[in-house]
Nucleic acid binder design. Structure first.
Ligand SMILES: [Zn+2]
Ligand SMILES: [Zn+2]
Length: 871
DNA sequence: AGCACGCCGACT
DNA sequence: GTCGGCGTGCTC
């Protein structure tokens, strides 16, 4: 922890600092006292002199960890001139009192003309924590996706490496009669301060049950009864563990015999020493973790301490990894003929420096090909980035890769703690141990220095696009740019490529490698449609299940095989409904019905988090007959358990996998056949390999097909193919049943007939006809404001201004399906940028016009969000 | 994101 | 009258 004390009566608050640990030396800042940290001491014993002609005065442009459009210029204290470097963090005072750790983005010697630059408080790092290539990459993302460097800093740098000060109020011994000077509220605060010694501003707000406390604290500051400290906590600590070794004087056998003589009366210590020697196994120079000695026998702990006191053993704290790499299992990988062919073809693409698209059907063994390519890249001493959808990280893939690549690999996961992320960050900066990073979208923002290969698996997946907050980047598209900067190769892989990627392949912009043969004789599943219209007419339907599907499930489980049932979550949500008047509980902040969560028995808004207990009576008509509707996985699980006695049903969705190991447990239960029917949402579509699945059922294809979005056909196709791929792995073909009211739909027909080409051909044609990507680029502009008329006015004005330059390319504004979120009304403008406009100029225009909107008085508090290439 | 400054309604 | 809530603008 670094701590500054601000002398309370000094007007310019950040002039004089005391380091608590080096007191009474007056220093500007001190890091020397921070244990185990990369921070270091900056002694600045005197006030800075104003610039003299003899000295070079340097300035740095700092990226602050805030969503601000610009960089801020700070002056470098002469003493730090040699320390500043691009990519290092600096502590700077921003605003009245806050201290942030910003990042040096630029160094120059131009004093700002319009204002007096503040000094940086300190240079934090000895070496840059962000590489030049990262900064270059950030620049590109900012330009392309219309966002700010600060937003990239926020998205990239692990929170442990981002420091911000906290304002701490401390009492001052103000002598007798303090109370007379204070108001009632101030007395309450003062008493609490005496008791607690120190309080954060938020604590005081809590105590007084009010929102703004700053004026009160300011008044107390003026009355000289409190002081203020700005504390910055160094949040990243290297984790250390105790290691035991033999002391210098007890390494030889003779010396050790002496030691045992000394211990004649201490049998426990003899035991401990014996155990140490045994674990050292003859290597008397080695150090062993204390935990391994006492793991079997806790009572040895005290003995070890005694041995240390006697000077026989040394104990030292050595840094250890929080996120441990695993040992490789040394298994060899053999590729099939088809896989080898694909591998060669991919390399041909790489030689032409082309992005390569590997179109491999489910089960064709893409992963083995990836592994081979990764191996070859690592051998050349280069790093590899392997991107997968977030959902696949929890599955079986990572274990498999870890077994193969051992310690060179790190998985980068959003579930890691901040310190774990920081550790991986530093490991990658260091670049000696970790060479391969497997992770979701945000893994691409890590500090790679020497990428040789970027793999984007399931390249069509929508989760590669970041939604909120900014930067709203598309990881697949950005990966291509990242690779270009590193001079690395790019491999996109998918069983169902995105229309855009397939288009690029067809146009020879990408090198295309098909791998349409399943690995190990496995046969493609047999897909069949179940006509729900007919089933309803013939009364062969129970709830969500047609008799055909029920029979198939029953047959499958009776044959000892397993079933996966897929329930599409998009557009579905369980809700509470009044059967008398049709009323549904709605969110008070958003225009949406609340989702019912059975496990907690509450109603929740997915947009703002608003919670409501299910009302006992209808709030519209007072009728008590309310019921749950909607086709969530819970209901399917429940119904199926009732309909089929032999079904042991498990459920995999967002709710059922909340717990720490819940996900692994469900997978384990399914693998061991404890469950024989698995009902799930999108989660069952990715990263799972099961051997016994005889049947996959898609409960309804209709919702996804009718989703109002230009990608709905593409998405439906990808989703259905992906779930279908879970069926029938080995020799036996699996069965896939798709229930629908719309058996004639061209896409469903194409799927049943295995006519993949038709899907891509027809969809590409539709995109051209209705002008959607890949035939244009889309920028989505969302305006939001508490007042409906204000947004409408603002959005219309913005659209009007854009139309002056872009004409009919500007569509809308229109209200989105959910017009109000978090009590703000939203309106959207869609801009379609075709090949005839200059993309860069058009985007710059959109950005400037959006910013200019704030200059109109009535619209100045309208928020505008730009989303480039929305998904 | 904070935090200051300024305006406006509720309570002394 | 004053305190505290809230909208608006600025931070190098
Ligand atoms: Zn009702
Ligand atoms: Zn809501």
């Amino acid at each position: 922890m670094i701590k500054w004390t601000v002398e309370p009566f000094n007007k310019p608050i950040f002039r004089y600092f005391h380091c608590h640990f080096h007191s009474p030396t007056k220093v500007k800042l001190c890091f020397g006292c921070v244990k185990n940290s990369v921070l270091k001491c900056v002694f600045v014993p005197k006030k800075y002199e104003l610039s003299s002609p003899m000295r070079e005065t340097r300035f740095v442009d700092v990226i602050l960890p805030l969503a601000l459009p610009k960089l801020y210029t700070y002056r470098v204290p002469f003493e730090c001139n040699d320390e500043v470097a691009i990519g290092k963090r600096v502590l700077v005072n921003f605003g009245a009192s806050k201290i942030y750790s910003g990042l040096i983005g630029k160094i120059h010697g131009n004093p700002p003309e319009a204002y007096q630059a503040k000094y940086i408080e300190a240079v934090i790092d000895e070496y840059p924590v962000v590489t030049d290539l990262q900064l270059k990459f950030w620049d590109w993302i900012c330009d392309y996706y219309l966002c700010y460097a600060g937003e990239l800093l926020l998205a990239s740098l692990p929170a442990s490496l981002r420091l911000a000060s906290e304002t701490i109020v401390v009492p001052i011994d103000a002598g007798i009669g303090v109370y007379d000077k204070l108001t009632d509220a101030e007395r309450v605060v003062f008493d609490a301060l005496i008791e607690n010694n120190r309080m954060a501003l938020a604590d005081i707000a809590d105590l007084l049950q009010r929102k703004s406390v700053y004026p009160l604290v300011k008044s107390m500051l003026e009355k000289q009864v409190v002081g203020i400290e700005e504390e910055v906590h160094d949040r990243y600590k290297v984790l250390t563990k105790p290691f035991v070794s033999l002391a210098e004087n007890f390494k030889s056998d003779a010396q050790l015999n002496e030691a045992f003589d000394l211990l004649k009366r201490a049998p426990k210590q003899q035991d401990a020493l014996m155990k140490v020697l045994q674990l050292l196994g003859g290597n008397h120079q080695a150090k062993i973790p204390k935990s391994t000695i006492i793991s079997a026998d806790d009572s040895l702990n005290a003995a070890i301490s005694s041995l240390q006191k006697r000077g026989i053993l040394n104990i030292e704290y050595i840094p250890v990894d929080r996120v441990k790499g695993n040992e490789a299992d040394g298994k060899v990988l053999n590729l099939s003929v088809a896989q080898n062919g694909a591998l060669e073809s991919i390399k041909e693409g790489f030689e032409q420096d082309k992005v390569t698209l590997l179109h491999g059907v489910t089960g064709s063994g893409k992963t083995e090909i990836y592994i081979r390519l990764i191996e070859e890249t690592l051998k050349k001493g280069k790093q590899v980035l392997y991107l997968v959808p977030e959902i696949a990280l929890t599955g079986q893939l990572t274990g498999r890769l870890e077994a193969y690549f051992g310690k060179q690999l790190r998985v980068y996961h959003s579930k890691f703690s901040n310190n774990e992320r920081a550790e991986i960050w530093y490991k990658l900066l260091d670049g000696t141990e970790v060479k391969l990073v497997v992770g979701a979208r945000s893994a691409m923002l890590m500090p790679f220095s020497n990428l040789g290969l970027v793999i984007v698996d399931e390249e069509h997946d929508g989760s590669y696009k970041q939604q909120n907050p900014a930067p709203r980047y598309q990881a697949r598209d950005s990966a291509i740019m990242l690779a270009k900067m590193h001079n690395a190769k790019v491999l996109l892989g998918s069983a169902t490529p995105a229309i855009e990627s397939y288009f690029n392949a067809k146009k020879s912009k990408f090198h295309y490698v098909p791998l349409l043969e399943r690995f190990g004789k496995a046969v493609l599943p047999n897909i069949e449609l179940v006509d729900l219209k007919k089933a309803t007419r013939d009364q062969q339907i129970q709830g969500e299940f047609s008799d055909r599907l029920l029979d198939a499930i029953s047959d499958t489980i009776n044959g000892g095989e397993q079933v996966i049932l897929f329930q599409n979550r998009r557009g579905f949500s369980p809700r509470w409904l009044c059967t008398t008047c049709g009323w549904c509980p709605e969110c008070k902040n958003c225009d949406i019905t609340l989702t019912y969560h059975k496990y907690k028995h509450n109603l929740r808004c997915h947009y703002c988090g608003y919670l409501l207990n299910p009302p006992p009576k209808c709030l519209a008509c007072g009728s008590p007959s309310l019921k749950m509707i909607g086709f969530g996985t819970e209901k399917i699980e429940e119904d199926l358990s009732m309909l089929l006695k032999d079904a042991r049903v498990g459920r995999m969705d967002y709710d059922s996998t909340r717990g720490k190991n819940a996900y692994q447990q469900i997978i384990h239960d399914f693998e061991t056949n404890k469950i024989n029917v698995l009902v799930g949402t999108q989660m069952v579509t990715k990263g799972l390999d099961f051997d016994r699945v005889g049947l996959v059922g898609i409960l309804s294809a209709d919702q996804m097909l009718s989703f109002p979005d230009f990608r709905s056909n593409e998405r439906s196709y990808q989703l259905m193919m992906q779930v279908a791929g879970r069926a029938g792995r080995r020799e036996k073909p699996g069965k896939v049943l798709i229930q629908t009211y719309n058996t004639e739909h061209w896409l469903l027909q194409a799927i049943v007939n295995g006519n993949q080409d038709l899907v891509y051909q027809k969809e590409t044609q539709d995109r051209r006809e209705f002008l959607y990507p890949p035939y244009c680029r889309i920028v989505n502009i969302t305006a939001s404001h508490i007042d409906k008329h204000t947004v409408e006015g603002a959005a219309k004005e913005l659209a009007k201004q854009l139309r002056v330059f872009l004409g009919a390319r500007v569509l809308g504004p229109e209200y989105p399906p959910i017009a109000r979120v978090r009590n703000k009304y939203r309106m959207e403008i869609l801009v379609k940028l075709d090949g005839k406009v200059d993309l860069v100029k058009a985007k710059a225009l959109i950005q400037s016009k959006s910013e200019e909107l704030k200059l109109i008085k009535a619209f100045k508090s309208v928020r505008v969000i730009l989303d480039v290439d929305p998904y």
